[in-house]
Simulated scan of single mutants.
Amino acid sequence: MQYEVFSTSMDLMDSNSTLQVEVDTLAPIFAEHFPGYPIVPAAFTVGFVLACCRTLMPGKSFQVKRVVFTEPITPGLSLQLQFTGLHRSEPRELGFTLSSSGFIHCRGSVMYV
């Protein structure tokens, strides 16, 4: 799956509900966000997580509950996107964490119906 600057294979989710995610190195957005210190826009990150949720749970509607960005996501990073709560029916909330090499870049949760 390709979304903005992120790419992953949804078929390769491991038993810990974790996906490997690659960040593009040459995406045009990096020229303007920000010159000299390119980082992935927060909206791209949230959009990517929601796109993954929609692929994992087709037919569900998702709403962001909370998101915390703790480290910038820069071009060329290899990330792990881990979901929690995929296999429980209540509450209807999925947690997520985007990390690399021991650093948490982003974490949060989404509600679904």
Rank of each mutant, 00 (worst) to 15 (best):
F62G: 03
L12V: 11
V49N: 06
F103E: 11
F69S: 01
S109Y: 01
A51M: 02
L19N: 12
H87W: 15
M111V: 13
G36P: 00
L26G: 12
F62N: 03
A42K: 03
Q63A: 15
T84H: 01
A43I: 14
P75T: 14
F83W: 13
T84D: 10
K65N: 11
F62V: 04
C53G: 00
L26S: 13
E90W: 05
C106L: 06
D14M: 04
L77K: 12
C52S: 07
V64S: 02
P75R: 13
L79P: 13
V46D: 04
M111E: 11
F34K: 04
F83L: 15
D14K: 05
F6A: 11
M111I: 15
F96N: 08
R54W: 01
G108S: 05
Q80K: 14
S100V: 03
S99V: 06
V40C: 02
F30V: 10
P75C: 05
P75V: 11
Q82P: 04
F69V: 09
S89P: 02
V110W: 00
R88G: 08
G108E: 04
F83C: 14
Y112A: 10
H87F: 14
E71H: 10
S61D: 10
G59V: 07
S109L: 06
F6D: 10
S15L: 13
R66I: 14
G95W: 04
V46E: 00
R92W: 01
T74Y: 03
F44P: 03
T45E: 05
E90R: 15
E32P: 07
C106P: 04
E22G: 13
P28A: 08
M1V: 15
R66F: 13
F6P: 11
Q2A: 14
M1P: 01
G108H: 08
P91F: 13
C53V: 08
T74R: 09
T18C: 09
M57S: 06
F6G: 10
L86A: 14
P38T: 09
V113W: 11
L12N: 14
R92G: 05
Q80S: 12
K65S: 12
F96S: 09
H87G: 15
L50G: 03
M10F: 00
P41A: 04
C106Y: 12
T97S: 06
E4K: 15
P41K: 06
T8N: 08
A31C: 13
T84K: 05
L86M: 15
E90A: 14
T55E: 03
V40S: 07
P28K: 05
V40Y: 08
T45Q: 00
S61V: 14
V64G: 07
F34Q: 01
F69H: 06
L50V: 14
F48L: 13
A27Y: 05
G47F: 14
Q2W: 07
L77T: 12
